[in-house]
Design a protein around this nucleic acid. Structure first.
Length: 197
DNA sequence: GCAAGGATGGCG
DNA sequence: GCCATCCTTGCG
């Protein structure tokens, strides 16, 4: 499902105007057995009710002062979701820039917290139906070549032990709009420099 | 009521 | 790499 969402157009028709962007980066959270998932071990609190609800709805929560947007992808009772981490801005770029307070298009939606701010998505959207809108996805016929999709470990889940290593982050490898590069920039240690390697 | 801790972002 | 930020949770 995380893979299926790549290349789709995500749209929000808000009172301030319409914004949209192509999904270029997602992460899968597998539910009860996934230590990185909010629903690990069946953990359940009031704010995460939508995560346990019907698929095709939004699960939005706040962390570090930022709203993070997920699509619930499993039947009721299974806390499984896809986190949208980055978009390539399409419509309403000016509105996005105003909401974000930056001009560079690459800084508008390149991160889970950035894209919710740019799209005008808040925790008030927790549980909204993604078929009825005002937030929804559209297939715009963009073909995603499997060879252009990169898989990496998920971001910011170091606490999850072995599950932190699972390659559950999916991105369009060549997109300039990712939250960070698909492949870690080759890191040169001081030892390697000293060794002339 | 309060302290602790993030599925982050910005700046350096 | 560090810290602001602010909501949610857990505990009392």
């Amino acid at each position: 499902m995380a893979l299926d969402l790549l290349g789709k157009l995500m749209i929000h028709e808000s009172p301030e105007g319409r914004t949209s962007g192509i999904v270029v980066e997602t992460e899968a959270y597998l539910g009860r057995g996934d230590r990185a998932s909010h629903g690990y071990g069946g953990r359940r609190t009031p704010r995460m009710e939508p995560l346990y609800g019907e698929c095709g709805r939004a699960y939005v929560y706040v962390a570090h002062g930022h709203a993070l947007f997920n699509v619930v992808v499993a039947p009721p009772g299974e806390p499984t979701a896809v986190l949208i981490r980055a978009l390539e801005p399409r419509e309403g770029v000016e509105l996005m820039a105003r909401r974000r307070g930056v001009g560079d298009p690459r800084l508008l939606c390149s991160g889970p917290g950035r894209l919710t701010e740019a799209m005008g998505i808040t925790k008030e959207h927790n549980g909204v139906d993604l078929v009825e809108g005002p937030i929804y996805f559209e297939d715009v016929g963009l073909e995603v070549d499997p060879g252009s999709v990169a898989r990496t470990p998920r971001v910011g889940v170091d606490y999850a032990g072995e599950d932190a290593l699972l390659p559950l982050r999916f991105c369009l490898a060549d997109s300039p709009y990712l939250s960070r590069p698909a492949s870690p920039r080759p890191r040169r240690t001081s030892r390697q420099r000293a060794g002339g390697g």
